[in-house]
Design a protein around this nucleic acid. Structure first.
Length: 779
DNA sequence: TTTATAGCGTTTTTT
DNA sequence: ACGCTATAAA
């Protein structure tokens, strides 16, 4: 059956080439707003419709769960529209709601349900639930299919335990965070504990390797995996077991990866192995019925701190491609026509990103008119900045009836910046949503309940067990718990094995024996029930039986009421999940909560959106406020002495600018509160890189008086005529009144708008403006 | 075993 | 400035 002739007619030639590509590798270099999601969804539909590919043979990897959900919905709609025309000759929208639902559910059952669409993490978790019991790592560690997925705080807790208690190390010298970071990095490069150990000659490295080993022991003992292992373990399994690799290779004929610039080494390994069954891509012969289709934009690579490596994208042509020059190649397509933003916004973005050296040559070509100029505002401090932003929002909303609160987004570098804006929005009664920050699933009460559930599913999960064994209070204290844990450790069994055993508990626990046995009995009951009973029922049962809800009710405080509502919300979420995914099991729900993010719940609603630039990736808004453009904040001070990191900050700025459809506001403050004290702030380097002719400076005077309870504006800073911006260069030595002797490591900006990064002995790096701060040259 | 308090580190970004 | 953790007292 031929495809609907109309099906592809709305695509531009490049999009069409991407969508119609059938077999072999293809890299789609897709600029911001160039319709890549469209290309991805149409391609999947086209594979099924035109090429008769079975949905279960398609694997599509998205960057977030939200993107996965959206993709499924779009595909579903595409098919439903088609079926409506084919069957009844009527457009989907003209059918009755009942007919529409019926059609959609038919599409779901025959097509979308069978597609493998998700993030690397969720897809790998799904495969591991089937195959992990066939895996054994280099040191014989094994996992069972009911494994827990540990979140960042679980992991940090384990790390700390190993460093402080097991190894007796100083946790200031070996900060759990930084050790965790090193291990995570190793994992994302595909290094196991042995490989890592071999690569570390110095003391610190050997210690970390030791921690890595003990950490893996702890994970295995808890029958748990961290985020990184979801991918790494699967890759290892596929490497060591040809039969399993062959099975999944034959399962997935068509691989699609979105946001390919943000994949890391292990993820690349996985895709490569699945695509070519472990054969080197250039030697692989089986392309005649399969494909690898990756979509990305190196200019939007912003996750290197998570070990993402955009050279993977840049090397695609070398690994999989035909090696022909850009004009003749059949393995790369560029999507450069931008349908999102005004010409003004695009020119600004293009000009900024030109300052980067590491990129694939690509520009965003406008398809819309010039639009409004970009407004740049200099505020006195962060309160003033918030005042300006909210003022603009109010004015625009008042003056344009078609604009709603949902059309606005405030984007910032760090989560901590949200507060000033929240305060101001509350003051004016404007509805808003903060994405990120404290996640729903990170709240204490939610983590408590999830720990109960994890324990029910996986009793070996001692981390969860220890979290909730005395929550609510059961009179089981630290000493009792310590005694039980060390018994477990000596016997080499999970803590649970001690707790469920009557005689052990009676001999070890004394006074609290009875409540421990009661607790154990309750968990045992639900553990036995969890395979057959629906997740929601188990949640309800546990909430009642454990006394968790009762104890919250007994508190009667406002905070406890809040917690109660959140717990109720979790119960609702489990029901909703069961309906949406057609799977009421506890296992499935728990897996989804472990990998959920705040973004997933960001519904189309009419509220102003507040989020970090990282969270904003992939989104678009008619009106965007890009705030806090200050040296040290954005670009962040950690990136100032690292060229590659600075380029990543610039890409982040590029991402921010390209989120805007119609109007963009940029702002910075001259002074900012940091840890309670006020710090002067310099304009960001990036401001000096934006085209002047597109920017319209907005004077602070345009802003009406601030409410009386706000801080007064600070007096202007008087410039020092004795130091000239042009005089400074990298390597210059100078004397500062407060910091002493220093050396210039960077010069930001040009001409009169210059500021310096200066390294001072003892004090470290500082960012200074020679026009503001007196700096005396030393020869 | 539970509760109060003092001190400390925190802020880059997240699946 | 604030929230969390370690430590001491009830």
């Amino acid at each position: 059956m031929p495809a609907d002739p109309d099906f592809l007619s709305h695509l531009n030639p490049s999009q069409r080439r991407s969508v119609e590509h059938f077999c072999g590798p293809l890299l789609v270099v897709a600029g911001a707003g160039s319709g890549k999601t469209r290309a991805l969804t149409f391609r999947i539909a086209n594979l099924v419709l035109t090429h008769r590919v079975a949905p279960e043979n398609i694997l599509a990897v998205t960057f977030t769960n939200k993107a996965a959900k959206e993709m499924k919905e779009r595909i579903e709609r595409l098919f439903a529209e088609r079926l409506a025309l084919e069957d009844g000759g009527k457009a989907l929208d003209l059918l009755s709601p009942y007919e529409q639902t019926k059609l959609r559910s038919r599409v779901y059952k025959t097509i979308t349900k069978h597609l493998w669409i998700g993030t690397f993490h969720s897809l790998c978790a799904r495969i591991l639930r089937l195959d992990i019991e066939k895996f054994k790592d280099g040191q014989g560690r094994q996992w069972q299919r009911n494994f827990s997925i540990f979140d960042e705080s679980d992991v940090q807790g384990l790390m700390k335990d190993i460093i402080v208690k097991q190894l007796n190390l100083d946790d200031r010298k070996f900060q759990p965070r930084s050790v965790r970071f090193a291990i995570s990095n190793a994992k994302n490069q595909g290094l196991g504990p042995e490989d890592y150990e071999a690569s570390q000659p110095n003391y610190r490295g050997r210690v970390i390797a030791n921690v890595y080993n003990l950490y893996q022991d702890a994970l295995a003992a808890n029958n748990a995996l961290d985020f990184d292992d979801l991918i790494r373990i699967l890759v290892d399994l596929l490497r060591q077991n040809d039969a399993i690799l062959d099975y999944w290779h034959r399962q997935f004929h068509h691989l699609l990866v979105d946001e390919y610039q943000d994949t890391n080494r292990t993820q690349y390994e996985l895709i490569q192995m699945l695509a070519t069954n472990g054969v080197h891509p250039q030697q692989f012969q089986g392309w005649n019925y399969r494909s690898v289709f990756v979509v990305g934009d190196a200019d939007q690579s912003i996750y290197s701190f998570r070990a993402a490596d955009f050279t993977i994208l840049m090397d695609f042509q070398k690994d999989f491609g035909d090696g022909l020059p850009d004009d003749d190649t059949r393995t790369m397509v560029k999507l450069e026509d931008n349908y999102r933003s005004t010409e003004t916004i695009l020119q600004t973005a293009n000009e900024l990103i030109e300052n980067n050296t590491e990129r694939i040559d690509k520009i965003l070509k406008p398809t819309r008119g010039a639009g409004e100029p970009i407004t740049c505002f200099r505020a006195d401090d962060e309160l003033h900045e918030a005042e300006f932003v909210v003022e603009q929002i109010r004015n625009l909303e008042m003056q344009h009836p078609e604009i709603t609160w949902g059309d606005f987004a405030i984007l910032y570098r760090t989560n901590a910046q949200s507060r000033a804006f929240e305060d101001m929005l509350v003051r004016w009664n404007i509805p808003y949503t903060v994405v990120g920050g404290l996640k729903f699933y990170d709240r204490r009460e939610i983590k408590d309940v999830l720990s109960y559930l994890r324990l029910v599913m996986n009793p070996a999960d001692s981390v969860s067990l220890q979290r909730i064994i005395n929550v609510p209070r059961r009179g089981i204290g630290k000493t009792t718990l310590d005694r039980l844990s060390s018994a477990a450790q000596e016997l080499g069994v999970p803590l649970w094995e001690i707790i469920r055993d009557d005689t052990s508990v009676k001999t070890l626990a004394g006074r609290s024996a009875k409540s421990i046995l009661n607790f154990a009995q309750m968990i045992q009951h639900w553990h036995t029930a969890h395979e057959t009973q629906a997740g929601a029922e188990i949640i309800q049962g546990i909430l009642e039986q454990s006394g968790y809800v009762d104890s919250l009710k007994a508190q009667g405080t406002e905070e406890a009421d809040d917690r109660l509502r959140n717990v109720q919300e979790l119960y609702n979420a489990s029901i909703q999940f069961a309906e949406e995914n057609g799977d009421p099991s506890l296992t499935a729900f728990l897996a989804s909560t472990a990998l959920a993010s705040d973004l997933d719940n960001l519904e189309e609603s009419s509220t102003v959106s507040l989020m970090t630039l990282h969270s904003a990736k992939g989104l678009e808004f008619p009106i965007v406020f890009l705030v806090g453009l200050e040296q040290g904040l954005f670009p962040n001070f950690r990136s100032l002495d690292d060229a590659a990191a600075l380029e990543e900050e610039r890409r982040l700025c590029y991402v921010g600018i390209t989120r805007a459809q119609d109007q963009l506001f940029i702002s910075h403050a001259r002074e900012r509160r940091l840890y309670g004290s006020r710090e002067p702030a310099m304009p960001s380097l990036f401001l000096s890189e934006l085209p002047k002719e597109q920017l319209e400076a907005r004077s602070p005077l345009a802003i009406p008086k601030r409410p009386p309870n706000m801080a007064a504006p600070s007096p202007p800073v008087s410039p020092h005529p004795n130091t000239h911006a042009q005089d400074w260069g990298v390597g210059d030595r100078l004397l500062h009144k407060g910091f002493g002797l220093g050396e210039v490591t960077h010069v930001f900006g040009a001409g009169n708008k210059i500021c310096l990064a200066v390294k001072f002995a003892g004090v470290g790096q500082k960012i200074l403006d020679p026009k503001v701060t007196r700096l005396d040259r030393v020869d």
